[in-house]
Every structure is written in structure tokens, then in C-alpha cells.
Design a protein around this nucleic acid. Structure first.
Length: 845
RNA sequence: GGGUGAUUAGCUCAGUUGGUAGAGUGUCUCGUUUACACCGAGAAGGUCGUAGGUUCGAAUCCUACAUCACCCACCA
């Protein structure tokens, strides 16, 4: 392929090199195994098949490299931070508090990827920033390890049949698995440089979290926010547990809508249904009272096909005469409408579904069949007996359980509920009190609150979770609650605090076997985290938290339920700010998933590009928006760390006898310019970070560092650094070191490793803070001068012009021009000397 | 059906209160011997989803539509 290119070509030290090497090897031109491509230079020229190849940067393997050693650096500072307890919360500090209520991740994930990295790195940028702003940051980490996700994960991983294993054995495996999961996460956070205080951790199954969750239960009960009721609840037949509205997800499905007829006094009544398997649960037919076709039948009965029993025909204005046949079948219970009618009209109950999703004895001939099997058989029987009029294909959306994708059903059962449905105004008011970042996400919250229909069912018929602190009287089923001082308590192992039932006097009790919804525990994290501190005074101040960072899909669960609990317990918001992040997507914008395999495992990413580079990519997300994985951005992050490293080297090589505390009074135009630019950038970056806009902060720092500091300023002062004007040199050194310290401080929240390395190498001797991450956020630099350089852009334009002139004539930029006539308008008296020196021109006209 | 967000250079995305289109990356040309080839300079690239409207002037404000994503509802 190279032969085809007739023009001389320069191969740069990029991806093409390997290809070129292989090609040269094939031609027998590349045979010296001691040669390797690295960052240092050596010029070789080949003439092959009339292709010139200028191939540089080849050095023997044994030559020492001055390249940035990322791996060693990251390891070094990780160790240092841990050993010196840099991120440990101080109970003694008088600084104002900044409390982060971090989402405890589900540890039931064995495939960590860029998405996980992104969601946690983003909160981290803020934490490091606030720490440098002088806040006493409280940054604990929790792990959400109980509940359905974990159970399903364990079931799948070990292919467990829960009917063949005891509850305690199962829980034991869950505990083991979650411990392992926590370790996996901890390692990733450590490698990423997440500045969590690892002395402050909790797990949602721990005695502490159990205690707080159970206390919450007792307190809610005391405050009348809790009740136990037998009612049709949302039920997942696959997980065999009650679930909450928030656990639902939409799923599109192709289905058949079946027209079948009921007969009533000789009339054939055609109804359409997608769920014929619920025929034996039919309790009524409904028509619109104004519908002339059926008016005369209201109050009469209709005969259910196949099952031969009669149901009443009733009227309801909610029935749309124009929809379908204008007849609606109500079952117990196929959907929400059924539930409503059943409740308001006190209809009979014919619950045909069992907890395992099979039909019970009401299904008669279909008893024991699964929903889909029953549907198939009933359709074929209806057809055979002539009840089926027609079948049409439709595509509809149904509610499935988000954890397993199974369509949900309604099943009659006794559950604990927290009152939320009638308090929409209260929840909306809390939503208004919180600061949402971005502001638009408040709407997501409000939309959810407005769509609330049922109270929050918090009991789950599962094994692995926080137990209810409750027993029941065996005789009258009166619930007996634990005393607060008994917590945490497992009612299966402990006796209730009463010896006899206060209602009926019986002395035998049974423990509650259900466990709490996983959100019932995670919604109390604002109360859990403060329990990690001993000092009572500080404990008080840790609530409400300052920041709640989380992704948008748990606004309706974690955020909402936390608000509910915080309201009932303390009439307070649980946190001040909510920072909503998006998801990490793959490079094509698809969700990252194990099934698609569209991701690079996090360990591999870290190994190949380093923590700083990946964090750099993660900073690119706009608040509340998804972020595509972009390897180019990661590479740019790596380039930025290397560039910083090289600037550091330049500084170290040019420090001479520079005294850091000396402020120069002899600043030159370029110095003043860069200092002013720095101050402007700093202001913008600070504002951006304050508003949680880390992406914008990064853009501003990048622009200053790359386009102003390295591309211009460093080039502007090279002649002064190596020149013999001591005063000018001193001013350059002062400006250089001062601005660079500001730069690494601004980059510190995003690129913690390289910045710490540079701080320790260059500045530590003269600074008080033992880590850059404990140092103060930079403040605006005072500029000691009377000079006005507001027109300095002229000088830059002039230099650009000269650079362009040289570039167009294929001249080296470093070559000196004897004379040059500027077309750019510039104050030559003011900037002439500077331009001649910086752009290497002898005479400027 | 209702809602929210997105639609800007080949790709990934910025664009603050309406004033002649921006960055990174990729492409092309050229340069480079002491901070850095994990570099530097330069060039090419867009009627800002479509159609209307407001305005002296619209990527930006309004209306409709299209496509995509997510949320909610419907599911007789």
C-alpha cells in the first residue's frame, strides 16, 4: 500500500508506526531487534520503491526514558493518600461541612465498565473541589447489598433452585457474594482515585443499616404513616413477591386481541380481550349508560363462556362506546381499571392467579397452568366451541418488573404500606425546596409524583433483606412491634417484647417472614451515614446532607423515597442539592450491557490509559445527560497528563536558584497577559464547579492550559529563561511557577495523580499542605504592575502572522528572519522587542 | 396519546441574555534536535433536522412537522 503513494511521506509516531515496522520487516529492512520506537529521537532515512520515509524516534532499548511513568505515579500516590489518611473526615475541624450522600452501588455486578466509572467519578470531581475550597468533606461510601437484585444475581450465578435450599444457606451465599462485590468496587474506586473516606463505610444489610431501617419502620408506625392491609398488590410471578409502582418498567409486546362473545338473554355480546386466561376471573361487564346498543341490558346478567356462570352487566361513564365493541370485561384483576371498578362498585372477588403465576382451582380445567399456557388452551377451546369471533394482532405496552422483565399481575395479599399516594402536594413542595442540577430534572421528579397511584408497598416475600421488627398474634393476627432498644432485631430469632396479645390475650406469636423493599433501606442513607460518626454534636450537623449525586433513573425511587422518609421523620429535606448525572453509553450511543458486550472492562481501561485519562473522559458529561464512551477523549486525557508532566520538566530544568516566595516587581507584557488570563479562567472555572458543571470547568482549564499557556506563553518566555537578563528571567520564573501551580490546582479534581506528582516534585518544599488535594483552591493572583496590556492580543496576532509566514515557506519556526514587515497593526514601541524575541525576527518593520 | 431532552464540520460535542458559525478529534500540507512526535504551525470542512413566523438581524425566540432517546399513560 505504501508503494502506491508516490510522494515523500513522513510517518509520525502514531498508530501507523507498527504497520510500518511490520512492512519494513517484511522487506528485510528492519532487522535490528535492539531498536524500538520511543519518545526520543534519531533520524533514519530509507529509500524504498521510490517512497521516502523519514522515520524518527528510534532508539536502542537500553536508553533511559524520561517519559511520564503513569503506572508508578498512580501507585505511589494511591499509597500515600491511604497512609497519610488524606481523605479522612476530621471530627475536630472547625471548617464548614460538606456532606455527600453517595449512592450505594448494588454490589451484584461482576462486570464493571466505563459507565460505573463515570457515575462515581462525577461526584468525585465535586468532592475534591469542595475539599480544596476549604470544606470539611464527609464522603462515606455504602454498598447496597440486600434485596432482589442481589438475590437474582446469586440465583443466576450459582444456578440455585430456591425450593431446594434453606433460607439461611441462601443468605450465607448472598453475604459471601456481596462481600466479594464490595471488594471489587473498592478496588476500582481506589484505582480511579475516588477520594472516599474508607473508614466510613456501611452496607445496607449491616446491623447499623438494619437498625436504622427498623427504627424508621417503628417511627413511621408511631406517626401513623404505615399500615398493613390485605389488598390486590402488584406482584411479580417470577420473583414471587409484591413490588412497588416504582419497580415497574414498560415493555412493548406483540399480542393478539381476541373477540369472544358472552351471551345474555339470547343476545351475543362481543367483547375484546388480550387476556382470555382471566375469563374465569370475570366478575362483571360494563357498558356506557348512554350506549343505545346495550342500554336495555344494564342490570341483567351475562353468561361467561366456557365457565358457565353469570356476571352482572353494569354501567359506567368511563367506558368509551366508540372503543372496541363498547363493552368492557372486568376481572379480578387484569389491570388498574379492574381494580378501580372492583373497589368502587364492591364487586365480587374471583382471584384466579396463584403467587407462582399459575391458575388456581377457579380455573377448573385450566388449573395449574401457567398464564401463557392457559391463554393458549383457552383460545383453542373458545375457538372449538365457537365463542371466538376473531383474532387480531396488536402491539401494546405492558408493565413488567424491571428486575426480571416478567409482566406483573395483581394478587390479593397482605402487605405493609407507607402512605404516599394522597400527599402529592407535600412531595411537590419538597421538590421545590431542593436545588436541582440541572434544574430541568425537577420536572422528572414532579412528573413522577403526579403519576403516583398507590401507596408504597414495602414488604417483599423474599429472603435476603432487612427483616420487619414485627411479630403477629397467632390467634388474631394483631401485629406486635419491637421496642426501639431491641434494634436491630430478627423476629425469627428473638421473642416479642410482650408475653400476651394485647388484643385477644393469646400467648403465641409468629414472626413476620417478609423482608423490606430494598428502597426502604436505601431511602434512609441520610440517617445511616451520620451514624458513622461518634461525636454527637457533629452527628447533628451531618443531616441534612449537602449533596445527593445520582443518575436520573433513580429520581423516582431513591430520591423520592428519601424525601418521603425525611418528611415523616424530621419534616425536613434529606439533602440540599441534587446533582443528576446520566449514563455512560457505548461509542454508538447504545446502553452498555453485559449482553451486548459493548464495553472494555474497567480494569483493562485503567491498565491501558490510566485513571487520570479515564476521569478526563468522564468529566465531559453535561449534567443530567448521557455520555458516549469516546476513546479519543480518553486518549486526549492521557495526552493532557503527559503535557502537564512535560511542562513540569521544563520548569524543573529552568528553576535555577529561584526562590518561590519572591514576588517579581518587574513583570513584562507576556507575564501580565498570562496572569490576567489565568485570573479570568480561574473565575470561570470556580463558577462552573460551584454549579456542578464539571464539563464546563474542564473546557475552560483545557483552553487556558493548551491554547494560552503552552502554545503561547511558554514559547514567549523561552528566550528569557535561557537569556542572561537576570531580572527578566526572575519575572519569567515567578510567573511560570505561579501560574502553573494554579493550573495543577484547577486540574486537581479531575486529574488527581499527575497533579499530585507535580505538586510534590516542584512545590511541596515551599507549600504547607502535605497533599495538593488538601491545599487551598487558588485565588486570584495579585499583579504588581502599572502596565496596561489590554491590547496584547495585537502582539499575539503579529506573532501568529510571522508563524504563518514561516509555515507557508516551509521554514522551521525556530529559524531567525533577518527582517519582516508586519501587516497586523501593532504598537511596535510597546511590543516590538517582545515580538522580535518571541518570533525570532532581527528587524521588524 | 401526554411530557422531557436531543437534532450544529467526516466523528464526539460546545455555543451564556438573538448581532458575520466554535472546540477537540479525524483529513491534507509543512516544520521539528534539549519540556513534549504522547510535539508545533498552517489549510480545507457547516445554507446550525424541515417548513413557516416575529425581528433591521435567528443556531438562539414562537408555531407546525420529521427523526432519535428516555419518562408517563393506554393496554375492554
Amino acid at each position: 500500500m505504501y508503494q502506491k503513494d508516490p510522494s515523500p511521506k513522513t510517518y509520525r509516531h502514531r498508530d501507523g508506526c507498527r504497520e510500518l515496522m511490520e512492512w519494513l520487516t517484511l522487506l528485510g529492512l528492519w532487522s535490528d531487534p535492539l531498536l524500538k520506537i520511543t519518545g526520543d529521537r534519531l533520524k533514519l532515512k530509507f529509500l524504498v520503491h521510490s517512497v521516502y520515509i523519514t522515520f524518527k524516534n528510534i532508539i536502542p532499548l537500553n536508553m533511559e526514558s524520561k517519559n511520564y511513568d503513569r503506572i508508578a505515579t498512580e501507585k505511589r500516590w494511591k499509597k500515600f493518600w491511604e497512609k497519610e489518611k488524606i481523605f479522612q473526615f476530621s471530627e475536630k475541624s472547625k471548617a464548614p461541612l460538606y456532606v455527600v450522600d453517595t449512592p450505594p452501588p448494588y454490589v451484584s455486578a461482576d462486570h464493571l465498565h466505563a459507565g460505573h466509572i463515570m457515575s462515581y467519578a462525577q461526584a468525585e470531581f465535586i468532592v475534591r473541589y469542595q475539599r480544596m475550597r476549604g470544606f470539611n468533606v464527609f464522603y462515606p461510601m455504602g454498598f447496597d447489598d440486600n434485596g432482589l437484585p442481589t438475590e437474582r444475581f446469586v440465583e443466576k450465578k450459582y444456578k440455585i433452585d430456591k425450593s431446594k435450599i434453606t433460607k439461611s444457606e441462601f443468605i450465607k451465599i448472598c453475604l459471601q457474594e456481596t462481600e466479594q462485590g464490595a471488594q471489587t468496587y473498592k478496588k476500582l474506586w481506589d484505582d480511579l482515585g475516588i477520594s472516599v473516606d474508607w473508614t466510613k463505610t456501611y452496607s445496607t444489610i449491616s446491623p447499623l443499616a438494619t437498625k436504622v431501617s427498623q427504627w424508621s419502620f417503628l417511627d413511621l408506625h408511631k406517626k401513623g404513616a404505615l399500615y398493613r392491609n390485605e389488598a390486590p398488590v402488584l406482584w411479580c410471578p417470577s420473583c414471587r413477591t409484591a413490588i412497588a409502582q416504582a419497580d415497574l418498567e414498560d415493555k412493548k409486546e406483540d399480542a393478539k386481541i381476541n373477540s369472544i362473545y358472552f351471551s345474555s338473554h339470547g343476545t351475543k355480546l362481543t367483547i375484546a380481550t388480550t387476556r382470555p386466561e382471566l375469563l374465569s376471573a370475570c366478575v362483571a361487564l360494563y357498558v356506557n349508560p348512554t350506549d343505545t346498543r346495550y342500554k336495555h341490558l344494564i342490570g341483567k346478567n351475562a353468561l361467561v363462556p366456557l365457565f358457565d356462570y353469570e356476571v352482572p352487566i353494569r354501567a359506567s361513564e368511563k367506558v368509551d362506546s366508540a372503543f372496541g365493541t363498547g363493552l368492557m370485561m372486568v376481572c379480578t384483576w387484569g389491570d388498574k381499571e379492574d381494580l378501580e371498578k372492583w373497589q368502587t362498585d364492591k364487586l365480587q372477588t374471583r382471584a384466579v392467579l396463584r403467587e407462582d403465576g399459575r391458575l388456581n382451582e377457579l380455573g377448573i380445567a385450566y388449573r395449574g397452568l401457567k398464564i401463557y399456557e392457559a391463554r393458549k388452551k383457552i383460545i383453542s377451546d373458545l375457538q372449538r366451541k365457537g365463542y371466538l369471533i376473531k383474532q387480531e394482532d396488536i402491539s401494546h405496552t405492558l408493565n413488567v418488573h424491571e428486575r426480571c422483565g416478567t409482566p406483573v399481575e395483581f394478587i390479593l395479599s397482605k402487605q405493609w404500606f407507607i402512605k404516599i399516594a394522597d400527599l402529592q402536594k407535600t412531595w411537590l413542595a419538597y421538590g421545590k425546596k431542593l436545588h436541582w442540577y440541572p434544574e430541568t430534572k425537577r420536572q422528572d421528579y414532579e412528573l413522577w409524583v403526579n403519576s403516583l397511584q398507590w401507596d408504597w408497598c414495602i414488604s417483599r416475600q423474599r429472603y435476603y433483606g432487612v427483616p420487619f421488627p414485627v411479630w403477629y398474634c397467632e390467634h388474631c393476627l394483631e401485629p406486635i412491634l419491637a421496642h426501639e432498644k431491641m434494634l436491630p432485631v430478627n423476629p425469627a430469632e428473638v421473642k416479642p417484647p410482650l408475653s400476651s396479645c394485647p388484643k385477644c390475650g393469646h400467648k403465641k406469636f409468629v414472626p413476620e417472614n417478609d423482608v423490606m423493599d430494598t428502597w426502604a433501606t436505601s431511602s434512609v442513607t441520610p440517617f445511616i451515614i451520620r451514624e458513622l460518626v461518634r461525636d454527637k454534636q457533629i452527628k447533628k450537623k451531618l443531616f441534612p446532607a449537602t449533596l445527593r449525586p445520582n443518575a436520573f433513573e433513580i429520581i423516582r425511587t431513591w430520591d423520592f423515597y428519601s424525601i418521603v422518609k425525611s418528611h415523616y421523620h424530621f419534616q425536613s429535606v434529606p439533602f440540599r442539592d441534587v446533582m443528576i448525572s446520566g449514563h455512560g453509553l457505548d461509542e454508538h450511543g447504545r446502553k452498555i450491557s453485559k449482553r451486548l458486550g459493548n464495553y472494555i472492562p474497567s480494569e483493562k481501561l485503567l491498565e491501558e490509559y490510566g485513571a487520570d485519562a479515564i476521569r478526563y473522559w468522564a468529566t465531559g458529561a453535561m449534567l443530567g445527560q448521557n455520555l458516549r464512551f469516546n476513546i479519543q477523549e480518553v486518549k486526549k486525557g492521557r495526552k493532557t497528563t503527559i503535557k502537564l508532566w512535560n511542562v513540569g520538566r521544563l520548569i524543573l530544568m529552568n528553576l535555577g536558584d529561584f526562590k518561590f516566595k519572591e514576588v517579581s516587581r518587574h513583570l513584562e507584557c507576556a507575564d501580565i497577559w498570562i496572569l490576567q488570563e489565568f485570573n479570568q479562567t480561574l473565575t470561570k472555572v470556580t463558577h462552573a464547579f460551584d454549579a456542578y458543571a464539571y464539563a464546563k470547568a474542564k473546557d475552560e482549564i483545557d483552553q487556558f492550559f493548551w491554547s494560552k499557556f503552552t502554545d503561547y506563553y511558554l514559547e514567549f518566555i523561552k528566550y528569557r529563561l535561557s537569556g542572561d537578563d537576570a531580572i527578566s528571567q526572575q519575572a519569567a520564573r515567578y510567573t511560570l511557577t505561579t501560574v502553573f501551580l494554579g493550573i495543577i490546582k484547577m486540574y486537581a479534581p479531575i486529574l488527581p495523580f499527575i497533579t499530585e506528582e507535580l505538586y510534590q516534585l516542584i512545590y511541596k518544599k515551599n507549600e504547607r499542605a502535605k497533599s495538593l488535594h488538601l491545599s487551598q483552591w487558588p485565588s486570584v493572583i495579585e499583579i504588581h504592575t502599572d502596565q496596561d496590556v489590554s491590547d496584547f492580543t495585537q502582539a499575539i496576532a503579529a506573532i501568529d502572522e510571522i508563524r504563518k509566514y514561516k509555515s507557508e515557506r516551509a521554514m522551521p519556526l525556530g529559524s531567525e528572519l533577518a527582517k519582516y514587515k508586519l501587516t497586523t497593526k501593532v504598537d511596535v514601541d510597546k511590543y516590538g522587542e517582545f515580538i522580535r524575541n518571541a518570533a525570532r525576527v532581527k528587524i521588524l518593520r
